[in-house]
Design a protein around this nucleic acid. Structure first.
Length: 810
DNA sequence: CGTGTGCAAGTTTTT
DNA sequence: CTTGCACACG
């Protein structure tokens, strides 16, 4: 059986038939007589897992190969091995929102108020730690690092709180399993033997924890087949380590490497654009992409006058293509960098009566009413669940207020019991008012009644919840439009449960249902045959393809994103993101930029994405006429480029001709910025961790010990995240300035205000040197946005009241 | 205690 | 523009 054994690395370019290759390999394994239950195929999304499963069903009908997402695989393992990691089998999976709620409560109780680290930021930190295999017991802060010393308190506190609620967050699913495999060698060995053939999709997006899991399951039987494309690694921000794939051959010296470089998806023009772009990445293994597909349309790049015209023109173009019968709505996809950009396109598509869908899967499960209703189910499944209790105890309102709940929390904490237990003996908590105590007792009674139904089909349980709590009645009685919307969402949830029951022949448990609903992803919405235009982020498009793809808002700040410009590595990831977007297209690729963008309620001038200048000019049908299609000659392309290179983004407002002239003059002044001071030195990238360092043969089962040793070293190294804070005392300071601003009436005259111009270097007594990157308003309302050299980042000031002074030119 | 109002703040990407 | 949050009122 030599042919199928051993590690295999499939480097697969976009559209190269990767899924096909993997499924054929699995089919081949089965043909060779390997039992399906020994094969495990891991993906990142349910969509990919389902796709693989269904193709496999065609190739090898009736096979019992487990195709699953990483997270679901881990969730299942944890059901079985929960006690080994300190959980019970009925644990709850908290989504980002749940875990942040819990985190906020922890912060409050730990007495950490308005620390300058936002809960969001702390949550990110914890997530990073977990993705890097750092457990809370073992974390050591670097002395003198304020964030880390804070985390040394919060991380354990948060984690203990999760345990108390018998819950875990997304990252825990992975981390617990990794810990399990590390701490229980006999279980590791059992699972290693059980899953003798492991296939991992999108390996370039695995993080250290996933890496650890995969390796731990492939020690004795290193029949590990990973597929991926380093050029499509776009999840570095959530801990994915591109080195996992780049150094796979070092991890497994006997690796066979297969390269899939022929593209079956796109036209040559699209592929040339993609290659040309990605070649600008420095940290990259060269790869030759080619296709035998016939030449077709050039890539089209259109520069629109503003974002409204952009959306409208594209919708119109779609409408025409659909009307002429050339295309159907489902042939199109619109891709953007941030979700917030979807609004404009939704409006345009609605206006043109083109059906569309938004690929933002979790959205449904994030709705208040859905989370409210689900929280009952969660509490029924896991009575210790703190979040669920707090959410449903007073929904719909029963007269149980925050004060009572605070007392309940305190009581629960002092007894080390769950909230529900505490509620059972609420009469012993003297601080809670009689009336509230009554209400709480009533809730407990309701809960107990509902828990009688727990063995029924999920739809029935949900039905009981909805009626017993009078949730439905409440919504039906209301005639507010909002409540009607909620009602229909709740009904939608009912039909989801019905479908779930049917899928599982009535044998699906509540636990399974909750697990499934916790692990939905954006792409899961994508059930084939709906004839609609698809709207989604670049990230969500990975692995998908469409005949016509529109990549929109290709502007600096969006792509590359403003927050991803600090480090060259981040820029490269942004470039890969663009690469992913481009290579989704089969036949036509429409790129667009708007010169003025309406965003967050403001209009602002834009600068075209620097990536656009990395595309092959000769491949592009370029149109800068503001929407009407015109073939442009190269010279105007060049002059545009020069123009853009010097224009700073600026908030847009109608201006008087005099104003305009003044601004124009200053615009072309060479900013004194460059000579004035060194640029903000980029934080050195941390020394490369040796996560995937030298290798010793894998066949010894004892390699386990060294594996973990190595991984935790790497974790320690890479865990020391850089990024010294950005917003230290900033918000407080900002508020103070604002307060002062209110008291003051106009003191400085507008003349003084007019001395400021975009691009000008200025000094602030507190933040130091900075550059004006945008101006708005006039006279006393004139505001400047300044980007500081220091860690202060960007700040806005009302010039008339700010201590900003222009730096003197020498 | 619940609701309403107002203001402030913050906004990348997601399993 | 949205969402979240604080406060004040009924």
């Amino acid at each position: 059986m030599q042919v199928v054994d051993g590690p295999l690395l499939i480097l697969a370019g976009p559209g190269s038939g990767k899924t096909r290759t993997v499924t054929h390999r699995i089919a081949y394994l089965l043909e060779q007589g390997i039992p399906g239950r020994q094969i495990l195929a891991l993906t990142f999304t349910n969509h990919a897992a389902d796709e693989m499963a269904s193709r496999l069903e065609t190739l090898s009908p009736g096979a019992t190969v487990w195709t699953s997402t990483f997270h679901k695989f881990c969730a299942r393992l944890l059901r079985k091995y929960a006690p080994q990691v300190g959980l019970e089998a009925n644990y709850t999976i908290y989504d980002a929102d749940d875990s942040q709620r819990m985190l906020k409560r922890v912060l409050q109780e730990e007495g950490i108020r308005n620390s300058h680290f936002t809960p969001q930021r702390i949550a990110n930190w914890i997530s990073r730690a977990k993705n890097n295999l750092i457990r809370y017991e073992q974390f050591q802060p670097r002395p003198g690092d304020p964030l880390e010393s804070l985390m040394a308190e919060i991380y354990p506190a948060y984690q203990r709180r999760l345990y108390l609620a018998n819950a875990c967050d997304f990252d825990d699913l992975l981390l617990h399993v990794a810990n399990l495999l590390r701490d229980a060698p006999e279980i590791r060995q059992e699972l290693d033997r059980r899953y003798r053939y492991i296939l991992v999709d999108e390996y370039q997006d695995t993080n250290l924890t996933q890496y650890g899991i995969v390796r731990a399951l492939s020690l004795e039987f290193p029949n590990l087949c990973v597929t991926g494309d380093p050029d499509q690694s776009i999840y570095g921000w959530r801990g994915a380590n591109i080195k996992n794939i780049l150094e796979f051959e070092k991890d497994y010296p006997s690796t066979k490497v297969v390269r899939l470089e022929e593209n079956y998806r796109s036209t040559p023009a699209i592929l040339r654009a993609a290659s040309c772009l990605i070649e600008h990445n420095q940290q990259r293994k060269a790869k030759a992409l080619f296709t035998k597909n016939p030449e077709a349309d050039p890539v089209r790049l259109t520069v629109y006058a503003d974002s409204h015209i952009e959306a409208d023109s594209i919708a119109l173009r779609m409408e025409e293509a659909i009307a002429s019968g050339k295309r159907r709505p489902k042939d199109f996809a619109i891709l953007y960098r941030t979700n917030a950009l979807s609004v404009g396109w939704e409006a345009a598509l609605r206006a043109h009566r083109i059906p569309y869908r938004l690929l933002q899967g979790i959205e449904f499960y994030q709705r208040k009413e859905i989370k409210d209703v689900l929280s009952y189910l969660q509490l029924l499944n896991n009575p210790q669940d703190e979040n669920a209790f707090l959410r449903c105890v007073n929904t719909p309102s029963r007269g149980i207020g925050q004060r009572s709940l605070d007392h309940l929390l305190t009581a629960a904490k002092s007894h080390g019991s769950s909230l529900l237990e505490a509620a059972r003996s609420v009469e012993n908590i003297s601080k809670i008012a009689k009336r509230s105590a009554k209400a709480i007792q009533k809730f407990v009674k309701l809960y107990d009644e509902l828990s009688q139904t727990i063995a029924e089909p999920v739809e029935a349980i949900l039905g009981h919840v909805l009626t017993e709590t009078e949730f439905l009645q409440h919504l039906r009685d209301s005639d507010s439009e909002e409540d009607q919307e909620r009602l229909s969402n709740v009904e939608e949830l009912l039909s989801v449960t019905r479908a779930f029951d049917e899928d599982h022949g009535g044998a699906g448990t509540l636990e399974d249902f909750l697990e499934q609903s916790s692990l939905v992803a954006a792409q899961d919405d994508l059930d084939g045959e709906e004839d609609r235009v698809t709207l989604m982020t670049f990230h969500a498009s990975k692995g998908l393809e469409f005949p016509v793809v529109c990549l929109v808002a290709l502007e600096e700040g969006f792509l590359p994103h403003e927050n991803s410009k600090q480090h060259p590595d981040q820029i490269e990831e942004e470039r890969r993101l663009f690469f992913v977007g481009i290579t989704r297209a089969k036949e036509e690729l429409w790129l667009s930029q708007a010169r003025i963008r309406l965003y967050r309620g403001r209009r602002a001038m834009t600068v075209p994405s620097s990536f656009l200048f990395e595309l092959p000019r000769e491949e592009l049908a370029l149109d800068t006429s503001g929407g009407r299609l015109v073939e442009l000659d190269e010279s105007s392309w060049e002059s545009d480029r020069d123009e853009y290179a010097q224009v700073e983004p600026e908030e847009w407002k109608p201006r008087s001709p005099a104003d305009l002239k003044k601004l124009e003059e200053k615009l072309w002044n060479k900013p004194s910025w460059q000579e004035e001071e060194e640029e903000d030195p980029l934080p050195e990238s941390p020394p490369e961790s040796e996560a995937t360092a030298e290798e010793k043969p894998d066949d010894a089962a004892d390699a386990s010990a060294s594996l973990w040793a190595k991984l935790s070293t790497a974790a320690d190294l890479s865990g020391g995240d850089d990024e010294p804070n950005a917003s230290t005392s900033a918000s407080r300071e900002d508020r103070r300035t604002r307060a002062r601003r209110k008291q003051e009436t106009s003191r400085k005259v507008s003349q003084e205000v007019e001395q400021f111009a975009t691009g000008m270097a200025v000094r602030h007594p507190h933040y130091g040197l900075g550059k004006i990157i945008a101006l708005s308003g006039t006279g006393i309302n004139r505001k400047a946005t300044v980007r500081f050299v220091s860690q202060a980042g960007e700040k806005s000031f009302v010039l008339a009241h700010s201590p900003l002074v222009p730096t003197k030119k020498k």
